[in-house]
């Protein structure tokens, strides 16, 4: 295949969806772990209110991309701009970007020594300096949104995996982020609990939240995504609408991947 076709297939990555107004821009982003290149020249523009699902085989760098966006990993080359702020090494700058990006992890990462309510109020109180009553009101609103307000006084260890992940979503939402990053949010869950988490994510997408979701849930990608990004070996291989992607994939690597998982 010629370079020209490849460029065409990836050109979709540069056209923001949603409202058409870019909120996250990645330009020529490279990431090295030692000698290993985890990301190769990533270009991606995310539009406001857009839902982008990133799929790909394990080790393809999809988690690394979203971890670079909120600087849990430091990218080696290139530019990352989030809501007009370019990511630099400055701690204040990083914290500012992290306030705008809520993140949900595969392993929940709730704080086991704090109650659910404290988990959700902590950052509001410490980072946004909200008064206690206001933070708790916000926390209860978000817990109600993910349908577990009654779990507020419990500790994370007392909840099921699905409930914990929903608390994690509420915790991120309580900071009023502009973007939500999901790093394989259902991969550590028992099958019967996946749906409750996906339901919460679907509701969130419908409310107009900008979301980048790394997942293996093809059903979710098909139903909710505005664009699907397929990555392999640290590169963006193919970008397109779910219809294009699942009905008419162009790249051999995409076809191979889809044939393996569908």
């Amino acid at each position: 295949m010629s370079d020209l076709t490849a460029d065409k297939l990836r050109a979709g990555a540069l056209k923001p969806g949603g409202t058409g107004e870019a909120i996250i821009t990645l330009e020529h982003v490279d990431k090295f772990f030692g000698d290993f290149q985890a990301l190769k020249d990533i270009d991606l523009v995310i539009g406001k209110q857009e839902v982008v699902v990133v799929i790909g085989p394990s080790g393809s760098g999809k988690s690394t991309v979203i971890r670079c966006i909120n600087h849990l990993e430091k990218h080696t080359h290139g530019r990352i701009v989030v809501d007009g702020v370019e990511l630099s090494d400055d701690v204040r700058n990083i914290q500012e970007i992290r306030r705008e990006c809520g993140m949900v992890f595969q392993s929940f990462n709730l704080f086991p020594h704090l109650t659910v309510l404290e988990n959700v109020t902590l950052a509001q109180r410490q980072v946004r300096k909200s008064p206690k009553a206001q933070a708790e009101q916000e926390a209860m609103d978000q817990l109600t949104r993910v349908k577990i307000p009654e779990q507020a006084p419990k500790y994370p260890g007392q909840l099921s995996g699905g409930q914990q992940q929903r608390v994690a979503i509420a915790r991120a939402l309580a900071m009023q982020p502009k973007v939500m990053l999901f790093d394989e949010p259902t991969s550590a869950l028992d099958p019967e609990m996946i749906k409750e988490v996906l339901d919460a994510m679907v509701e969130l997408a419908q409310s107009g939240m900008t979301m980048i979701v790394v997942t293996h849930e093809m059903g979710f990608a098909r139903a909710v995504a505005d664009r699907v990004v397929f990555m392999a070996d640290g590169e963006i291989v193919e970008v397109g609408t779910p219809e294009h992607f699942f009905e008419d994939p162009q790249e051999d690597r995409t076809k191979l991947f889809l044939s393996q998982i569908l």
Binding site: L72, E96, R98, M103, F105, F111, V127, A172
Partner: peptide
């Protein structure tokens, strides 16, 4: 990471 992602110093 969970705490960092929330913007805690």
């Amino acid at each position: 990471e969970g705490a960092q992602a929330l913007g805690l110093s």
